[in-house]
Simulated scan of single mutants.
Amino acid sequence: MKAIRMTGVGDVHVLKYSDEPDPRPGENEVLIDVRAAGVNFMDIGIRRGMKGGAYKPTILGVEGAGRVIEIGPGVVDFRPGDRVSWVYVASSYAERVVANVNSLVKIPDHIDDLTAAAVMMQGLTASHFATDFYPVRQDDLALVHAGAGGLGLILTQLIKLRGGNVISRVSSSDKIGAAVAAGADHVIVDTEGSFAEEAIRLSGGVGVDVVFDGSGPKTFQGSLAALRPSGTLCWFGPVLGGPGPIEIMSLPKSVKIGYAVFSDHIPTPTLLRRHTNQLFEWIGEGRLNVTIGGQYPLSEAARAHADMENRATIGKLLLIP
């Protein structure tokens, strides 16, 4: 089979489109023909060596959708032909992947493979942020960074579903339309981290209730400044780095800061399937739209990484084997 293997740590040139042996399923595992693999910032972080430890050659990717073609010993709930999606299954940038059944969700008939692949990590992350980490309330005002990205677009929609209002921060004017289409009430175009004053103005001078910030150290102080008294900063996304040491007694306005990790939203197969099926239900009802901003042949994974790093994309990026 073909796959994308890292040949070292570094820029996109370390990604090699290579021939690999077909994997075989073991106990409680299935072999899947991959129809689409999701591209995520965590993949870029692994490629850059940001996960720590010594480098080991690896096939990238953790997310996707496809069809079961073989089952291993002990598998009873899946059979060849089942359409499935997953998140946190290693080596997903490939034509075939082996997955433990506990990582899989069956795709309902009304959801196509590409949508299923596109909604897993970013949809579940948005679900965690808006329903679990900070359960958005009616009339809450949220500031969403990277509002035209795959996560930002889904998060905006979930905030609106819960009755909240959204200020979306985007990096260029050509992304305003996507943010507005997702439901953003206001859009700030900013690349320098100087958004706080405008966010406070749009809030009527009091500050926002919650900020969802995965944009790295450049935006941290502005996100704090944009909060109302006792507001909440949801910090996420390790690829761009953390804010550095924080002197807790220097925090303004009794704000609350937390680091949100979406895997805490799906610690069991039951919760994985419950939350994913809720996303599928909203999609089927037309209440949630998943924007696929780019489809790349598997062989062009390096180009997909480069486009994502350059902030040149809107919505979710997929690799198609």
Rank of each mutant, 00 (worst) to 15 (best):
F236D: 00
T191N: 13
G242S: 10
G183P: 06
V187N: 13
W235D: 07
V211Y: 06
I159P: 01
D174L: 02
G237K: 06
V211F: 01
T191L: 07
G183L: 10
E197L: 05
K175C: 09
G193Y: 03
V170W: 00
L161W: 00
L153D: 01
M249V: 13
I154D: 00
S173D: 11
L161E: 10
A226M: 04
F262I: 05
A196T: 10
V261H: 12
Y259K: 07
F195N: 12
S203L: 04
I159N: 05
V208G: 00
E197W: 01
G204A: 07
A260I: 13
G222S: 11
G150N: 06
K175D: 07
S254N: 15
T219E: 12
G216F: 06
A182N: 09
D174A: 03
V180G: 03
G183V: 08
L224P: 02
G214Y: 13
L202G: 13
G205S: 13
V261T: 11
G242K: 06
I159G: 02
H186F: 14
K218P: 04
S194E: 15
S203V: 08
G214V: 12
F212P: 03
S171W: 00
K160E: 03
A184K: 02
F212I: 01
V255W: 08
G258L: 13
K160P: 02
D190A: 15
V206W: 06
I200Y: 11
A181N: 14
G205C: 12
L202D: 12
G150F: 05
S254K: 13
G258D: 01
G164D: 06
E192M: 07
L240V: 03
A178Q: 03
K160R: 11
K218Y: 07
K175V: 06
L153R: 00
S215M: 14
K175H: 00
L151R: 01
D209E: 13
F212C: 04
G193A: 08
K253W: 11
V211C: 14
G177T: 02
R201A: 12
E197C: 03
A179H: 02
V180S: 14
I176S: 03
A179M: 12
L251C: 11
Y259P: 02
S215D: 11
V170S: 00
A199R: 09
D174M: 02
K256G: 10
V261K: 11
A182Q: 09
I188E: 11
S172F: 00
G150P: 10
I188R: 12
S171K: 03
G242R: 05
A196S: 15
V211W: 06
L161K: 03
I200H: 07
F236E: 04
N165W: 00
V211P: 09
I154S: 01
A184Y: 08
V211R: 05
A178R: 07
G193I: 05
K160Q: 00
P238W: 09
D190H: 13
V261D: 03
V208D: 04
G231Y: 11
I257C: 08
L224C: 10
